[in-house]
Design a protein around this nucleic acid. Structure first.
Lengths: 126, 126
DNA sequence: ACAATAGGGGAATAATTTATCCCTATATGA
DNA sequence: TCATATAGGGATAAATTATTCCCCTATTGT
């Protein structure tokens, strides 16, 4: 298992938020769980660009940070459901704000993102 | 220069936000620039945990994404000032929300973060 | 002549994160 | 018997991100 070699900086609130939210899919995981997609396979279908493996790992971290809980039903085939904790739920409005900004500026964002992608890649990358 | 090999997913607003904000120091850079710390050396002093190099790289990306502008004064020793664009300024309330959540739950966050750090590292890492 | 200041950039390397591949287990349906 | 669905983990490879080290510019002060 991988162990961090450098300790994170934890000065202000922003550092702390970064520590629990920094991960490519974490915000989306929280968002989808909140939206009622609680089972791993559902989440994987919702986020097809992420590998199964990394979703499990990030879910584990969210669980370690007490933003979600995992309930395992002792049935076959196995059934698992994730839910937001009270703590995790308190993050939802914050993520909502983030998503709203993204939606509000969607066109602008697509423009600047594709501009800077083209900028660095004249080379072929599929 | 490094060129991305996998294209980012850009489905919803959250994906787009992620694309421009995902970077270890970007949010803090925006925050400090907004707070009036506009010169590179100031920013480096404010964020001593980041290397000078990576701050320059992330500032460049923020500039490419049109969230900040860079003004170079033709003097010696050189003087550079970053400012938020109108677009970048629109992000400040969002970052504020994020930071407020971090501040509100500071104690709780420190607790869960250090718990999960200890959890994985029984090994020495300074 | 040399150091300090202010700002940067290239190359190599280290650290971290994500992806791929393959394996486990049980029950159901073809 | 074999495929499918469900959930997950280990090992390894690849991709990405960040750090370190060294170099360059020009001026002012010692």
């Amino acid at each position: 298992m991988y162990v961090k070699k450098t300790l994170p900086a934890l000065n202000c609130g922003l550092d702390l938020v970064g520590e629990v939210l920094y991960g490519k899919w974490k915000i989306r995981l929280l968002w989808f769980i909140n939206a009622g997609h609680q089972r791993p396979s559902e989440l994987q279908r919702k986020i097809p660009d992420a590998s199964r493996r990394v979703l499990n790992m990030q879910l584990k971290e969210l669980e370690d940070h007490e933003l979600i809980t995992k309930k395992i039903y002792p049935v076959t085939p196995p059934k698992v459901e994730y839910s937001l904790t009270e703590f995790g739920r308190s993050l939802i409005p914050v993520i909502g704000t983030l998503g709203k900004w993204g939606d509000d500026y969607e066109a602008r964002l697509r423009e600047v993102i594709s501009k800077s992608l083209n900028n660095s890649a004249s080379t072929i990358n599929q």
